[in-house]
Design a binder for these strands. Structure first.
Lengths: 153, 153
DNA sequence: CTAAATTAGTTTCATATGTAACTATTATGC
DNA sequence: GCATAATAGTTACATATGAAACTAATTTAG
């Protein structure tokens, strides 16, 4: 019976394990900023991208955070309504709408970042510095591999 | 300016990296069974849980695959409609509804499992056997740590 | 034994998400 | 230059998801 080798042990199956770990971590992090700041995950990611990379258009934000333009557009609409980000006009190409954090947005960003980094630090505490680097490098290689496989198929 | 240490580099931020990697892998895997078999991710996970662990109630399925009972209930409804799983009656507790794969479900399961394992193998190809074990062990520790932090908070 | 509490599962409602169609603007081909 | 194609972003529709209310069955307290 050749299928003896083909049993799927979910708890050891890499895609499953990655999914469960990422979801748990994402939910934990979300707890840090959802109630006090009223941001969705996508809104926070847009703010994080803008906080780090000066003015970006919606498309550029999407490339940074791997999010499609519809999701970005909706997050941007919510952030604009709350005055957390600002739009500029690109004189040379009026299709493009450069975005940046407002003063209010910067202030909120500055309060969330330390919480996010502190959470990351608490997570990483179970790994030694060498192990952290090792995990980061291995996950990078898996990511690159997954991209290769996806584009090949 | 103490905040120089507090810059958030998204691309190095562990929760972000995990999320992006898990999503890419999950989508790639989904491509393998969505078109040919017409299963959603949650439906496939329910089938995988039932394929591995004999009869399970909906709640037990949820515990296995870390999915809330509403999601399980909906996936089960779809699988029942297609005749891929069967319900039994628990004489001693009629609230419980033990589930198992039907013959049809078993056949489909047997065709998907090799595809899933082959994908995992192609992913793992970029890592040596030692690196695979290392990655698995490190991710296990991160998962346990995330659980501890979540329950502590 | 009976009322209250618990548990398994479903349904409902409100929100989130993805795909595709749409508007506005700019670039390209002839 | 003008019709066509391409690009940035938004809107619309259909589906997916989560929280909370609900039903049915069982357990527990007194």
């Amino acid at each position: 019976m050749p299928n003896a080798l083909q049993a799927l042990e979910l708890e050891k199956f890499l895609p499953y394990r990655l999914s469960v770990l990422a979801q748990l971590v994402s939910e934990s992090l979300h707890d840090l900023y959802t109630q006090p700041f009223g941001l969705s995950v996508t809104q926070w990611r847009v703010m994080a991208a803008l906080g780090r990379f000066a003015p970006l258009t919606a498309s550029e934000v999407g490339q940074r955070i791997i999010m499609d333009k519809v999701a970005v557009s909706r997050a941007v609409a919510g952030l604009l309504k709350r005055g957390l980000i600002e739009r500029a006009t690109d004189r040379s190409d009026r299709r493009r709408v450069p975005l940046r954090l407002s003063a209010h947005g910067h202030a909120m960003h500055a309060r969330i970042v330390p919480l996010a980094l502190a959470y990351q630090e608490r997570l990483y505490e179970v790994l030694s510095p060498v192990e952290r680097l090792s995990f980061d490098a291995l996950s990078d290689r898996l990511f690159a591999r997954a991209q290769t496989l996806r584009s090949a198929a």
